[in-house]
Design a protein around this nucleic acid. Structure first.
Lengths: 189, 189
DNA sequence: TTATTAAACTAACAAACGTTAGTTTTGTTT
DNA sequence: AAACAAAACTAACGTTTGTTAGTTTAATAA
């Protein structure tokens, strides 16, 4: 049994380094040092630096895609769907805040088909989000402001949770979800 | 008169490339090609790659610092102060969306004193923001949710405006400001 | 025209990059 | 104890990196 464990350790260490300095600024020697081994030894477990990046990003993007598809195809109200989206983002952030840094900041360094695959998933995710909000505006659940502004405003906060959450010590996940839903949906005034 | 114009052109071109691929992934040869010259020729106008980055970031950070200080020392209401902050972010974004990408994503690659200088400005900016919101909660202008969540939620949207605004064709700045204020302060539900 | 200067060029540098090949160490199975 | 496989190692490769030195071209001033 070829130890896939070591590979996961490498990817975890890489996620942290990528978060701190970005994919391009992290060298294989940096990563090796963080693992306590030499750079060449990494290649006993991974195929390339690029493989590390795509493993981190594509896995997370697929998680979002699966989650969003469940929400879209449910028969919940618009507001409940928005709450479910907030829930999804917070859950993923709690589970893999480091990896989200790469998804948000280094996706453009994906190669081969992975870049297009990622962009397609992201576009569909945003389109689903937009459709939910539009429907809410149509049936009066959501205010009639500019759709793009509402979608962007909400999504930008959810997407950058990974930057903020690790700095909050010991904030309870449920309280975070409750307050975040209030702030994003009902405002602060 | 040594042409400072050419230097500004280089910094503009660099801002665009840094936005697309990040500071570390952009080579001096990439930048030279975008300018239609050879890499070595860049050094007739700039001292180093690092100088380009710090010029972009420190200038913008100081703009935010000056703007925030004006707002803080005014005698406007909390809500008006928040509106002024939104105004400030939108104004800076309209004027230099490309540079904001470096400020947001590549500040950690600043060297020497500039890194500490930047971090200090950012910390003071956030602290000013927090103080404004806290005062608003104290006098009843702002709802009593978790302070950090309200500050983060608002600021994360304002900070990533640069990613979103250029993709909206022909949205009027005043309409953007008005709707953004409504969405951020009063929510979408 | 000549002199001067700004801004381009060619050529090259030392260092750092991702990665490969081949070897040794370490730990487990027979 | 012997055999095997996993995972570390050393050494090196061909590129690419930011940058410097010295030279040529182009534009302006005397």
């Amino acid at each position: 049994m070829k130890s896939e464990n070591r590979k996961k350790e490498i990817i975890s260490a890489a996620s942290i380094l990528f978060k701190e300095k970005g994919y391009s600024a992290v060298t294989m020697r940096d990563l090796a040092k963080a693992m306590g081994i030499k750079a060449a030894s990494l290649y006993n477990h991974i195929q390339s630096k690029q493989e590390i990046l795509s493993t981190i990003i594509i896995g997370l993007a697929e998680e979002f895609t699966v989650g969003m598809n469940k929400i879209v195809s449910s028969d919940a109200s618009t507001i409940q769907k928005l709450k479910n989206i907030i829930d999804l983002h917070i859950d993923v952030t709690l589970r893999n805040a480091d990896g989200l840094a790469s998804l948000n900041s280094d996706w453009m360094h994906l190669e081969e088909g992975n870049l297009q695959y990622f962009e397609q998933m992201r576009e569909e995710y945003e389109e689903n989000f937009r459709t939910i909000v539009k429907r809410g505006v149509a049936n009066g659940e959501i205010k009639s402001y500019n759709i793009e502004i509402m979608v962007f405003s909400t999504l930008s906060t959810l997407r950058t949770l990974y930057l903020w959450y690790p700095k909050q010590h010991g904030i309870d996940a449920d309280i975070l979800k409750r307050d975040m839903m209030s702030v994003l949906l009902k405002g602060i005034v």
